[in-house]
Amino acid sequence: MRYSILDLAPVPEGSSTAEAIADSVALARMADGLNYHRYWLAEHHNMIGIASAATSVMIGHISAQTSRIRVGAGGIMLPNHSPLSIAEQFGTLATIYGDRIDLGLGRAPGGDGAVFRALRKTPDMAENFPHDVVELMGYLAESQPNAQVVAHPGQGTNVPVWILGSSLFGAQLAAMLGLPYAFASHFAPGALDEALQVYRERFEPSGRPGAETGPHFMLAVNVIAADTDETAHYLHSSQKLAFARLRSGRPGRLPKPTRDLSEITPQIGRMVGQALRVSAVGSPVTLRQELSDLIAQYRPDELILTGQIHDPEARQTSFRLAAEVLEDL
């Protein structure tokens, strides 16, 4: 079973965006030397705590600094873009870096109404998501006779396309199109069980060259690993605080870890606990048990790990320990 990294390119309190990007490069280089299969970045806008808004630019930067690992989007929020522009961007990346580029697509806006207006988009564009996915795949496929528009670079690169989701909609679309499916269980696991069942039961092979012949499911897991359980839970406080502040309408840079979580009200605390329930936090021994339980419960074809840790060195240590546990498993 393959395992990968979803890097949200966090900007920690007391740090800068430039430092956050450099930290992502360092983490990707480490992952490239381990057995991680993919290194994905996600599109978010108007968030000072995340440095990956220009996702395709970050993917190119990370790809240039690594040699083996696949690099891609987890994901591009397609309603923010035209299918042609994304095909050209990822076609260019594939032309430069070869068969190392992945394209995960989501239909969420990656921001609020103000972001939509700034992008010159409207919320109803999400309704075109299935059509836009098919159009985009057409631009990346082999050239068609008499095509009026050709993505160049893009045509014939056959960049692998994934559907990302946190609801039944994405599961149904991925199954219908015969595409691999990644569920956002690291922050929205509510519909995970039902979506996974729908995807597996309704999957229809597309017959496209190189396409999946059966359902291919990726589970996203929050992983915070350290030498001891106590240290890991201390580091995990940063992610809890960040999520609580986001849900309270106070997003910002990734907070420093703390043992005082009194600012999180009981109501928000329950919300945070539910959102982050697909997590493995602790020492390597604890991590092995918790990851084993998740694998046994959901039987994923791949795992993608994410972890919001304030200190870049502690973040690298966490992913290194997780890789050791998963390699042993």
Rank of each mutant, 00 (worst) to 15 (best):
L192M: 05
R202N: 12
P215Y: 12
A211Y: 03
D193W: 01
Y199F: 10
G210D: 11
S185G: 11
A188T: 13
G190Q: 14
E194Y: 02
A188V: 15
P189A: 10
D193T: 14
L196V: 15
R200V: 12
M218Q: 07
R208N: 07
H216W: 09
P189H: 09
L196K: 02
S206E: 13
R202I: 05
V198I: 15
D193S: 14
E212V: 10
G214T: 10
H186A: 11
H216F: 12
D193I: 09
A211Q: 04
L192I: 07
F187S: 00
V198S: 06
R200N: 09
Y199P: 05
H186L: 08
L192G: 01
L219F: 11
R202W: 05
N222M: 11
G190N: 08
E204Y: 04
G190F: 08
E212P: 03
N222L: 08
Y199L: 08
G214H: 08
P209L: 08
M218A: 06
V221H: 05
A220Y: 06
S206M: 07
P189Q: 08
D193Y: 03
S185C: 09
E194H: 09
A188H: 10
A211S: 15
P189N: 06
V221I: 15
E204V: 15
Q197A: 14
F187M: 09
V221C: 08
P205D: 14
